[in-house]
Design a protein around this nucleic acid. Structure first.
Lengths: 258, 258
DNA sequence: ACCTGAACACCGTTCAAGT
DNA sequence: ACCTGAACACCGTTCAAGT
């Protein structure tokens, strides 16, 4: 049996097989490693566990203690593979969005293609609201660049004038991130199984009741507010931006006043 | 001198002037109160102090301990006037946005009016990024209802078809909140005095460098990305949504495919 | 009623120590 | 190299006690 001092003096890149007197359960580092590889700690495994916790119990439940328990390790071990909590959320967000964007079917029609990309982002964020929250907290995330590129590529074939393409791609990205943040907020405060319609009705009446005579527009659309479909409304917004970027200007009667 | 037990037995709504033996500095509750009113604790004063801290040192600096020190009181005292930290942020956000929206000049031209409202929100959030972060975390905030109403009112005179008005107002609100969240995120990570252009350049090259041959769109607009003006780009997005909501559809060549 | 501040129940993160 | 878990330096919030 080698005393501890000797173990510590073993260079980390040296195979422990070469250390005389090493106990069997420390022998053959590589063999040992590969045997345990399935459940060894790694960034991928940590991110996977984080996603499980985030999806099951929400962003607030992702603590290093909970994660360490879930992985049957110490909280400090996680820091060996990940910089900090924010990095972990970023990696989880990247995973979830990359997976969603990779699944988008190849399209030929520009508008259909853009819709498909936007909806892939929407659906991913709808399924993983914490990812939406992270993206709006960190809009320079690689996933945002991916969305920006994937949408931007289609603007030329769509017929958006060259000078408007950058602004158009930015507007779409901002819009998508805005919806992402909203979805995340809704999911955070509206636990599963809540009556969505009643909840929306409450918000609408809260917005109206301040001054009982005014707010005519909100009054007029209150019914739509509590009954609309988020996904459908999301697409409507995407279409507005695309149509507006194509149009020459002065589409509205009142917009002629340039 | 009245013993403590007697002080405690004084009903809270009873004037302390009526308690025999009350020390002078506790006498004349009303007079005492009005004399100290200027620096007595109140929700308004707490919110005001919170805004000062938020503007000066950012959202992370708003702790109950810092706030209590700033107000020369105990942290528990704040809870007498405010529900919790989130309520405090909400009140501060409401203050800042209500002030900004109240200052918007009356306009006659629909497009100009909508731009003015959107820009008022943009500028308020630009000056108080923490308010933007709060709004995207809590999109049912009264300020969002106000923005929604103020914009919505102009859609009819603008010429947006009735059936599209709700979707249009929602799209604009989502867009504004999206930009709000981004601004907040930028302000959080880009301390004052940082070279904005270099920072944006870094993001752009981070988005591109993954695969050196691909990402043609990003490559094409990289210069615009690092040099664009946020405010101007914000207005461009608003205009896209408005134009798109007015247009009959099929404005783009490739959009004719319904 | 309103205020005080210690105490409570958490956090993320670090780090000496283990293997 | 990689893992452990106690310790540290914070938080928001509560609450018995004061005035």
């Amino acid at each position: 049996m080698v005393p501890r001092e000797d173990w510590n003096s073993v260079p980390y890149n040296m195979d422990w097989n070469d250390v005389p007197g090493m106990p069997w359960w420390r022998m053959s580092k590589r063999a040992h490693r590969s045997a345990r590889r399935a459940d060894a700690l790694s960034k991928a495994r940590i991110v996977e566990a984080a996603i499980e916790i985030l999806d099951a119990r929400g962003e607030a439940a992702l603590t290093f203690r909970a994660l360490a328990t879930h992985l049957a390790t110490g909280s400090g071990a996680i820091y060996w593979h990940i910089a900090d909590r924010n990095g972990l959320l970023g990696a989880a967000t990247g995973d979830v969005l990359a997976r969603a964007l990779a699944k988008v079917a190849k399209e030929k029609e520009p508008r259909v293609a853009i819709r498909a990309i936007a909806l892939a982002a929407f659906d991913a964020i709808d399924a993983h609201p914490w990812a939406g929250a992270h993206l709006s907290r960190e809009p320079w995330h690689a996933a945002v660049g991916e969305i920006f590129e994937r949408i931007g590529e289609w603007l030329q074939p769509l017929g958006v004038p060259v000078h408007a393409q950058f602004d158009c791609a930015s507007a779409l990205t901002n819009y998508i991130l805005g919806v992402a943040g909203q979805n995340a907020a809704n999911a955070r405060t509206l636990p599963r199984g809540t009556d969505r319609k009643a909840w929306l009705k409450g918000i609408a009446s809260g917005w109206i009741q301040d001054d009982p005579e005014s707010r005519p527009f909100l009054r007029r659309v209150a019914a739509q507010l509590s009954e609309h479909d988020d996904r459908q409304q999301f697409v409507a917004g995407v279409d507005f931006i695309l149509a507006g970027a194509c149009v020459k200007r002065n589409a509205c009667s009142a917009m002629r006043s340039r």
